[in-house]
């Protein structure tokens, strides 16, 4: 009805040229959407369809024979392989441990810096604490690899001076994964620290003063004031870190490539090795789809669990 009235107006105004104008108006939204649709198709949907298609074929990049359709074979062989089962467990251990460590440390550091914010020199401390983020992850990993070296590395050198037994940080299968986690914690705790600190600065000073007057202990200030206040920010940092950790790759490849044995062999490493060392593109596509599904499930469950808890200002407490 509204359109028709509009059309009548245009008819009157434009005269004989009306139909072209009308068509143009109707096409305009589609034309405006077109670039984003094209980009979406080209960058997301297209590759995704290609990925699924690849996962259904046996295809080795070194083979001149064309890819062979194998149905769900690639998934079947992936699921029955011990490599995959190990990689899944390692990935989860890596992500959960690193996440917990980064959160606890980032939070404690932020709380400490925030508490002492009025002391002179805290700006320098703050800057120093955040420098690890500035290092390229691959550089950080290689640097740590050198520091971890059992015979020449600086860490064991120092331990040697003190007379503590020198572990093979990256070559002891019981330690390697945690040594890599330590690198990730070193590099990414500052990220958590920075965002948590920003959240703390956003809390009105008067809230803390009110809490002090209310006789709140420093610990209760954190649990009853700080954390509830920026739960939403925490959730975002948590998700960002978790996604990053589930697909952590360069730090592992640059230090152990998944070894020793399979001590640090995570799912992303499996995908990389399958695709770019073995060139088995079908297997790699299947594995990366599985990884995608796992990450999506974990993230969705987490978001649900957290949103049920309610966020600042609404919902139950």
């Amino acid at each position: 009805m509204r359109l028709r009235r509009r059309r009548a107006t245009e008819l009157a105004a434009v005269g004989s040229g009306q139909s072209r104008v009308y068509r143009g108006e109707r096409l305009a939204p589609a034309l405006m959407l077109a670039p984003s649709v094209v980009i979406l198709l080209a960058l997301v949907i297209g590759p995704f369809v290609f990925l699924i298609d690849t996962a259904l074929h046996r295809q080795n990049l070194f083979q001149t024979t064309p890819p062979r359709y194998v149905g769900a074979d690639n998934f079947y062989y992936l699921f029955i392989s011990t490599k995959f089962q190990v990689a899944l467990v390692r990935m989860l251990v890596f992500a959960v441990t690193a996440l917990a460590a980064e959160f606890v440390l980032g939070f404690v550091l932020a709380a400490w810096v925030h508490r002492l914010r009025d002391l002179p020199g805290m700006a320098i401390v703050r800057t120093l604490l955040t420098t690890p983020i500035l290092v390229a992850p691959i550089v950080a990993a290689v640097m740590w690899r050198f520091m971890y070296q059992p015979d020449f590395g600086v860490i064991n050198y120092i331990l040697g001076l003190v007379g503590i037994p020198k572990p093979g940080w990256l070559s002891d299968p019981d330690i390697a994964l945690f040594a890599i986690i330590a690198i990730d914690v070193w590099q990414w705790t500052p990220f958590v620290f920075l965002i948590v600190l920003a959240g703390m600065y956003a809390i009105p000073r008067s809230l803390y003063e009110a809490a002090k007057l209310d006789g709140t202990s420093p610990w209760r200030q954190i649990t009853h004031l700080t954390i509830p206040w920026f739960k939403r920010v925490l959730v975002i940092v948590l998700l960002l870190r978790l996604i990053d950790l589930l697909r952590a790759f360069e730090v592992i490849v640059a230090t152990t490539q998944g070894g020793p044995g399979d001590a640090s062999y995570t799912l992303p490493v499996l995908v990389w090795e399958t695709a770019f060392v073995n060139f088995q593109m079908g297997d790699a596509a299947a594995a990366s789809l599985v990884l995608l599904v796992i990450v999506t499930i974990v993230i969705t469950l987490l978001i649900r669990a957290i949103s049920r808890q309610g966020v600042v200002g609404q919902g139950r407490r």
Partner: peptide, 16 residues
Amino acid sequence: DIAMVFQDYALYPHMT
């Protein structure tokens, strides 16, 4: 042993 009423009230936003 003092109580204070703040300009912005400083009520804890997540508490009733």
